[in-house]
Design a binder for these strands. Structure first.
Length: 937
RNA sequence: GCUGAAGUGGUGGAAUUGGUAGACACGUUGGACUUAAAAUCCAAUGUCCAUUAGGACGUACGGGUUCAAGUCCCGUCUUCAGUACCA
């Protein structure tokens, strides 16, 4: 009976599905463990071999935890809203829902082939109305909340209204828009309803605001900062420009400090935490206000170095700063206008690329130094960014290199305020070595003391205070797209109103085309039935809008990260129609114990999910305030593209070794046409694409050798390797083992099938171990000492490997074990039964088959993990290497039963030792447990 | 520039706490079986010297600590990833 992986895998996949082997029990007495993968976007291209890498790792861990007696939740679903399905709809007219459904079916089929232990009864799809009902519900919760800084949590907006009505807003310490004006209770009560709504909007955790956004004309939508890579859109690579639009925003900045602090409580990699820290970008310093000479206005700046305030010899405003137009003098007006216009024309990208060039213009206006009262010239310069801090800086050229360069370039005086430091060549920015001079009351103080004193004095003057600034910006939440969650929002007199939560979901309307309208409205502007009947609480045709009972609905949809920010909680209780998950389920499952996914989500999804979790925790909807306790980033599996060389202007292709003799261009061809020796299947290529049909090929050694290039696996490079082919040729167990064997989980690595035969033949050897020729040959004989040693060595190593996520080395461990047991001619059940359990997380199908043949009725998944016993590893004697002063090295055999003193005595008495140590008697013998005996002379 | 990770045979990669570097696999070479091929099995395989016995060198480079360093410390170089006029 040979190892028929196809039949075995089919059989057990069907068995698992039928018996719901991996269904997680919601109210178990067992300890819970929640293992989650980042759910995939179901793209039309299907899965490639890179996708399953993380899934296999999490599956191994989930299966291992089940063996260890945990109640494991290991679900899977789809992040099924997104741009590609919409783009496809624009091109073909096919509804994105249909595309998405087809793609999901394909994904499911591919996933099933690999034998994952997912609990499919808890599947979620973000585009399912039963799911996005709750995404909309969370949005409403955010709208109805404000952030109380004193309580350091989100509170109900009704409580804020009550305070406004009784005390006004003077006592409120909230995270809100910057243009909030103070009002009394009387003012508030005198406001019209619309005015009140406008004020409240400035406090809500999701709010409408005119914001400068990243507009991508080609995609017809706005993009979040993390959707832009190098100034072009992440998807498609189109240019992005700045544009002002009214958009929904999420007040994530309210959570900046908690998002930062929370990192201390979770087990993520340092690099990932570091990216989030950088993204949040906390800097501690002071805000300082400068009076403008001749105007009533003030300029507020943020600085991390208030200690250097006496070195401020000028100020710089961002060209977009509101005050620029106002304070520019008549003489400077032309120069300033030209400069501002030129800056506005330059794209963000150009501005970034061109860091070296120093540019700026003097406004003609002066501010007044808060302490010296001396005039400080006000300049504008594009090195100051409108989007950070207040868009204005106090320039201290002696302490900041950019200010220094700017001052040198425009011949602005540089004042040295550092004791004993030469600043004739460059600025001095070392805080630790700072001693302040030339600065009135700060003279002689170090950085820390000077900072404190400066802030104290500024506060006394009423011209500043200590301040912490965050780089983290509020997140724009509107997208001008069709295929996303509709907002549960309609507009009365221009003010947004939430649809009552009992009438959710508000389902996506039908449109005849998926493009923006001719007037520039989002695609939902094309819907005929997209108005809200506020009396009967339902969606009705647009032509009924009367603005008294029937109102227009929001035309934007939510961004991709809306649905993915909370999906982990939906899995806990996926079918629930009364709540996003029941209280019991949330209590029991808490949060994700192990999360595996790509590092590309470091500052997007992973930050937003933490934000929503903290918010829902504040509102009492969640018992936890972090979503993912432990996170592992799997490395990307890269493709190896194949390149042919076409002689320019001809239809001739030359082999790689000959290309240098010609002028050639590189074309990528499908990797399936290449064999393991980089040799091209020329006939196959001719059939692959018509452009190669009549091509000529110049060979070397009668072969056409292609060039190889390691790059991201992508359809456009024709380097995608499909897991189905591997499953057909070698089986899912081989694929699983091989993907793990490729290298460390977290490392990026190119896909190559060179070593796959080694893994495959291991499985065949494993199979043979349980069979003698054609028959199953496990016996009840007593295991030998050697076999017991092999088994327990393997248990120990595999357990350690899984706990450390070093899945690659356990594959080697299995290979060694099988080789040893084969050599020992081991047939003992006492060895082979636990071995099947050990390997079942990695190669579950073969394990199930062997398990069943061993006479077990239940799935191997329910078996307990073998217990490691140290005693089987202990040997009676062991070879010890002995070194002396690093010069001599020899081995001696020692009994382990001896005490430390006895070993020392034995070493000293050892004949060889004495010979070699002649004349150099060691004073001490150091016994390092288990390894080496050292003689120290 | 900054932050993070890494650098080990022909290749992918092992090496627990500082304790026999190169496990395991691929590839290569030789052999067995076979009419032949595939499959399978066996042996060799870091470099150099040596017929052998054996020896020397060897974990990017240069130093250091230690009886002992791939591992720890200092400096240099290189690669990858993220990020950037962040005041």
């Amino acid at each position: 009976m040979s190892y028929d992986y196809n039949a075995i895998e089919k059989k057990w996949q069907a068995y698992w599905a039928k018996n719901e082997t991996f269904k997680a029990d919601g109210n178990s007495k067992k300890e819970k463990y929640y293992v989650l993968d980042m759910f995939p976007y179901p793209s039309g291209a299907g899965l490639h071999v890179g996708h399953p890498l993380g899934y296999i790792a999490s599956d191994i861990y989930a299966r291992y935890k089940r063996h260890k007696g945990f109640n494991v939740l290991h679900p899977q679903g789809y992040d099924s809203f997104g741009l590609p399905a919409e783009q496809y709809a624009i091109q073909t007219g096919q509804h994105p829902a249909i595309t998405t459904k087809d793609n999901i079916a394909r994904y499911r089929e591919q996933l099933d082939k690999i034998g994952f232990s997912f609990d499919w009864s808890k599947e979620v799809r973000t585009s399912d109305p039963a799911y996005y009902k709750w995404t909309q519900w969370i949005f409403i919760q955010l709208f109805n909340s404000w952030y109380d800084i004193d309580a350091d949590k989100a509170r109900d907006i009704k409580e804020l209204e009550a305070i406004f009505a009784s005390e006004g807003n003077a006592t409120i310490n909230a995270v809100c828009d910057e243009d909030v004006k103070e009002f009394s209770a009387a003012d508030w009560n005198g406001f019209s309803s619309k005015e009140q709504q406008q004020e409240l909007l400035k406090y809500r955790l999701t709010y409408l605001a005119e914001t400068e956004v990243n507009w991508c004309p080609q995609l017809g939508t706005v993009l979040a900062n993390d959707e832009i890579v190098n100034g072009v859109s992440e998807r498609g690579g189109y240019p992005v420009i700045r544009k002002k639009m009214t958009q929904w925003s999420m007040r994530i900045s309210a959570y900046a400090e908690r998002l930062l602090q929370g990192l201390e409580t979770i087990d993520w990699t340092d690099s990932l935490k570091e990216s989030q820290r950088n993204w949040i970008g906390k800097s501690v310093g002071a805000s300082v206000t400068f009076d403008i000479k001749g105007y009533n206005d003030k300029i507020e700046v943020f600085t991390t170095r208030p200690d250097t305030i006496f070195g401020a010899t000028f100020m710089t405003l961002a060209p977009e700063h509101d005050l620029v137009a106002k304070i520019t003098t008549a003489e400077q007006k032309e120069a300033v206008d030209t400069y501002v216009e030129a800056t506005a024309k330059r794209s963000e990208r150009e501005r970034m690329a061109d860091v070296k060039t120093i540019s700026g213009v003097f406004t003609g206006a002066y501010a007044e130094h808060p302490f010296t009262k001396e005039p400080v010239p006000i300049w504008i310069g594009d090195y100051v960014l409108a989007g950070y801090g207040t868009g204005a800086v106090m320039a201290v050229p002696c302490g900041d290199q950019r200010d220094y360069d700017f001052a040198k370039h425009f011949d602005i005086p540089i004042k040295n305020i550092f004791e004993g430091i030469d600043i004739s060549e460059e600025a001095f920015a070392d805080k630790e070595k700072t001693v302040i001079a030339n600065s009135d009351f700060l003279n002689g103080l170090n950085y820390k003391k000077a900072t404190k004193t400066a802030i104290y004095e500024l506060e006394k003057l009423g011209q500043g205070q200590g301040k912490t600034n965050y780089r983290l910006r509020d997140a724009v939440f509107s997208r001008q797209r069709y295929w996303g969650e509709p907002f549960p929002v309609y507009y009365v007199d221009g003010m947004p109103q939430m649809i009552d939560a009992t009438h959710l979901p508000v389902e996506l309307p039908e449109v005849e085309k998926y493009l923006p309208t001719e007037t520039g409205e989002p695609p939902l502007g094309r819907a005929d039935v997209w108005a809200w009947d506020a009396v009967n609480n339902k969606v009705v045709p647009n032509d009924k809008i009367d603005d008294t009972t029937i109102f227009p609905l929001e035309l934007n949809t939510m961004p991709g990260w809306a649905g993915s920010s909370w999906y982990l909680f939906r899995y806990m209780d996926a079918g629930n129609e009364e709540a996003f998950a029941s209280e019991e389920a949330l209590q029991y499952w808490q949060n994700v114990d192990l999360y595996i996914g790509g590092s590309e989500h470091a500052t997007g999804h992973l930050l937003y999910a933490r934000f929503w979790t903290k918010f829902l925790h504040d509102k009492g909807s969640l018992p936890v305030d972090e979503p993912f306790k432990k996170l592992i980033n799997q490395g990307m599996i890269l493709g190896t593209s194949a390149i042919v060389y076409r002689v320019s202007g001809t239809d001739n292709y030359v082999s790689k070794g000959l290309k240098d003799s010609y002028e050639t261009e590189e074309l990528r061809v499908d990797v399936s046409l290449i064999n393991s020796a980089d040799e091209l299947d020329i006939e196959g290529l001719k059939k692959w694409q018509p452009q190669f049909k009549d091509a000529n090929f110049e060979l070397e050694d009668r072969k056409y050798i292609v060039g190889r290039e390691v790059e991201k696996m992508s359809k456009r490079w024709y380097n995608v390797v499909n897991p189905d082919d591997i499953c057909n040729d070698y089986g899912a167990d081989t694929l699983r083992l091989y993907e793990m064997f490729l290298g460390p989980l977290e490392q990026a690595k190119p896909w190559n099938t060179a070593g796959i035969t080694g893994v495959h033949s291991f499985l065949k050897k494993m199979w043979k171990l349980y069979h003698n020729e054609e028959v199953f040959a496990v016996t009840d004989t007593e295991p030998t000492k050697d076999s017991l040693k092999t088994l327990h060595k393997t248990i120990k190593k595999v357990e350690e490997d899984i706990e450390n996520f070093s899945f690659n080395t356990s594959v080697s461990t299995f290979m060694i074990a099988v080789n040893e047991l084969t050599a020992q001619k081991c047939t003992a059940r006492a060895i082979l039964e636990p071995l099947a359990v050990l390997i079942s997380p990695y190669a579950p199908h073969i394990a199930e088959e062997l398990w069943q043949k061993l006479g077990n009725n239940e799935s191997v998944a329910t078996a307990g993990f073998p217990v490691f016993e140290e005693k089987h590893l202990v040997e009676s004697t062991k070879q010890y290497p002995i070194s002396f002063n690093g010069k001599m090295r020899f081995t001696m055999e020692l009994s382990l039963d001896l005490s430390k003193d006895e070993i020392e005595a034995a070493v000293m008495a050892h004949e060889k030792t004495q010979q070699q140590l002649a004349g150099r008697t060691p004073k001490k013998v150091i016994i390092v447990p288990g390894k080496i005996v050292n003689l120290v002379g």
